[in-house]
Design a protein around this nucleic acid. Structure first.
Length: 668
RNA sequence: GCCGGUUUAGCUCAGAUGGUAGAGCAACUGAUUUGUAAUCAGUAGGUCGCAGGUUCGAGUCCUGCAGCCGGCACCA
């Protein structure tokens, strides 16, 4: 007998080996009818699985959130059957559930196109309508291989071979069709329902390896009901509307053109935003005692050979040859340059840690397929720094960087940050002893982060060849993750390039170098900001903060007075005196995402007020000019300066905020 | 780089079967002086991504190349 405990705490005893479905039926026919799967001790399982030991059992119905992955996984099997029915000769490979749906990778000579989707979806609906039960069978390895070999399913044979010897070979049948699968599945295909949709086709390498064959991937999604599917599709459309490439054009921030693939033409407004970020970062770094430098863009090949870049990074480098046949390379990284500055003049242990920062423009010849707006470009500015220190100082410095990065992200409204530590890769340099120390130091940082409630994970083997790293990742509007900040501990390059300092014992010592970026790249960070705020940048970041719009030309003079006063208050302001209706001006400046519109007409001119309208809101507040400008100027103060001001004014009563906070700012 | 798609006016997009290019918005000019997301009228604007080829004739068909888009691989 086994003892089974239900979610309400009730316990019943059953003969060992009883199936979940039988237990459900013993409780009530309706429970048995609506259950599609169960969770044994919290782990999803087939309803038909036997219960061999005492366990907690929860029955899962279709509407249970945990059923969603089953719906999608079942739908993946149905997709595969539909494709093999419609396109005989197509080989199946794998079809996992992913964050917002699922995909299935096929091998077929002909590509699939979205025009094929209606037929496939129709066939899927037919298979679902037949409501065939999913039946699990355990096969012998040889039987499974023979079955797939006979059908020319070379990829499945490879998958069978890859299953560890101690694991069963599980086969799920749905009527005639079957697939190798670890499960679990719902009770039958009919449980999938009708809320599924094929999304797109794409190429994908077998096993994610670019040396292996290219497969045809069909992306799809499924939900428990149509309303949820519709909501998801709506969310996708919203995400597309905040795409930084579209907003960059609409807000007149930057453009690209064919002659410069992956290189940005920054327009005046985009460059203003860029410089606002640099000014902010410069202040934060100065407080942390970084020194800022600037190193050459183009350096002789010999230096890159010494640093190891020529050997390991050559295909990513832009090179140039001059008339006298000397070969130079555009810097793809700033580190060798910073080491030259470190080496210039004898350093003492008393100089450490020495923090050298640069807003360094680097060029990297990225694969053409990798380019993506300003998120992934071939020329970009890093907020780079290299901290030269001793091994003993690594932990404290890494923690300081961590705290600074998190504080900075918070100032921009990012508090949901993915932190990962990447450890020693197979291909690496340096002694295991040094790696142990570096990883231990970063692990202590990681432990500290976990203690503070961050979910920091480890990426084994993903570190740089010269040391382990911490990676800080932000998400864009449609959930894509972009690595921004990074802290890398390097025991290699200072030695390679001959950097040393004089220790307390008068001996030469090689410093450890911590590579570190916080924005990562200004380009990428700006792209993420645009999408995060959907173009509705906070006032302090807006390249144009205030637009003064007149109602009639009678008030031009007052409008110009308001403009001068706004600029006097430190606001980035323009005036629109155009001969247009106010509705036209409101629309115009809303579309270019100007955060504050100050409307002036005869009334305002007479009373010396302004009518203030926020981007994203249709409410208006009429305020005395001085009050409006004072409050806007306060709001436009960068967050770090605001803190300074607050510190300086401690003891002074806080002023009542007069302006409503910006409306229409959405977080993703 | 790989797989697929795509490229026509500043933007969004029409242009079956080959016969020499069109709309809306934007721009420009004029009228209108307007109270919170599009005032009206007129004007101008394109070697149809680039280079070859087929044809009496190519935006349309063929070949090559490039850019862009979606993935994959790579990555800040």
């Amino acid at each position: 007998m086994v003892s089974v405990t239900f979610p309400d705490g009730a316990t019943r005893r059953y003969p060992a080996g009883i199936r979940g479905g039988e237990i459900a039926r013993s409780i009530s026919p309706s429970l048995a009818k609506r259950s599609v799967a169960m969770a044994i001790d919290g782990k999803l399982a087939d309803l038909a699985d036997p219960i061999e030991r005492d366990a907690d059992i929860e029955f899962i119905d279709r509407d249970n959130p945990r059923a969603l992955e089953l719906i999608r996984h079942d739908a993946a099997h149905v997709l595969a059957e539909a494709v093999q029915t419609l396109y005989p000769g197509t080989q199946v490979t794998i079809g996992p559930v992913i964050e917002n749906g699922f995909y299935y990778d096929f091998y077929r000579g002909e590509p699939f196109t979205p025009e094929d989707f209606p037929a496939i979806e129709k066939k899927m609906a037919e298979i679902i309508a037949k409501d065939r039960p999913f039946a699990k069978e355990v096969w012998s390895r040889d039987a499974a291989k023979a079955w797939f070999e006979k059908r020319g399913e070379a990829f499945k044979v490879e998958l069978v071979d890859a299953i560890p010897p101690d694991q069963e070979i599980k086969i799920y049948k749905q009527g005639e069709w079957l697939d190798l699968c670890r499960g679990p599945h719902m009770t039958s295909t009919g449980k999938i329902g009708a809320a599924f949709k094929l999304m797109k086709v794409a190429g994908a390498y077998w096993r994610g390896d670019s040396s292996k064959p290219m497969l045809q991937r069909i992306y799809a999604t499924a939900f428990a009901n149509q309303a949820q599917l519709d909501a998801y599709l709506h969310q996708l459309a919203e995400a597309e509307r905040r795409d930084h490439r579209r907003l960059g054009r609409e807000m007149d921030l930057f453009h690209f053109q064919e002659e410069g693939p992956g290189t940005v033409f920054w327009h005046s407004k985009g460059w203003t935003l860029f410089q606002t970020l640099i000014a902010y970062m410069r202040r934060r770094q100065q407080t942390e005692r970084y020194v800022e430098v600037n190193t050459p863009q183009v350096l002789d090949r010999a230096l890159w050979e010494m640093s190891g870049h020529w050997q390991t990074y050559r295909e990513n480098m832009f090179t140039t040859m001059t008339e006298d046949e000397r070969v130079f390379a555009l810097k793809p990284m700033n580190c060798p340059g910073h080491i030259q500055i470190f080496k210039n003049g004898l350093k003492s242990y008393r100089d450490l840690p020495l923090k050298i920062a640069e807003f360094g423009i680097v060029h990297r010849y990225e694969p053409s397929g990798a380019l993506h707006g300003i998120m992934r470009v071939r020329a970009f500015t890093q907020d780079d720094a290299h901290i030269f220190c001793t091994e003993d100082q690594i932990k404290e410095e890494a923690l300081r960087i961590n705290d600074l990065i998190l504080s900075i992200y918070k100032d921009f409204g990012f508090e949901d940050i993915i932190i990962k530590m990447s450890t020693r890769p197979e291909k690496r340099v340096g002694s295991d002893d040094a790696w142990d120390k570096a990883e231990a130091a970063l692990t202590r940082v990681l432990d500290e982060l976990n203690a503070r409630g961050f979910k920091a994970a480890v990426n084994p083997g993903e570190g740089a060849f010269y040391g382990p790293k911490l990676e800080y990742t932000l998400r864009d509007a449609i959930g894509r993750e972009w690595q921004c900040g990074t802290t890398q501990v390097d025991f290699n390059m200072p030695g390679r390039l001959g950097a040393f300092y004089i220790g307390p014992d008068s001996e030469k010592k090689t410093p450890v170098m911590i590579h570190r970026a916080m924005f990562g790249s200004l380009e990428r960070f700006i792209g993420i900001l645009i999408e995060h705020f959907a173009g509705h940048l906070p006032l302090w970041l807006s390249p144009l903060q205030v637009m003064i719009a007149t109602i009639t030309q009678d008030v031009d003079e007052y409008a110009l007075e308001v403009l001068a006063a706004a600029r006097q208050a430190g606001l980035k302001a323009e005036a629109d005196l155009g001969n247009e209706k106010i509705t036209y001006k409101v629309r115009e400046h809303s579309l270019t995402k100007i955060p504050v519109l100050l409307v002036v007409g005869k009334r305002e001119a007479a009373e010396r007020t302004v009518s203030l309208r926020r981007l994203g809101s249709n409410e208006q507040t009429t305020l005395p000019l001085e009050v409006a400008l004072r409050d806007l100027a306060a709001e436009a103060t960068p967050p770090d300066l605001k803190r300074l001001k607050a510190d300086g004014m401690r003891g002074v009563p806080a002023e009542e905020p007069v302006l409503a906070p910006a409306a229409g700012v959405q977080n993703p």
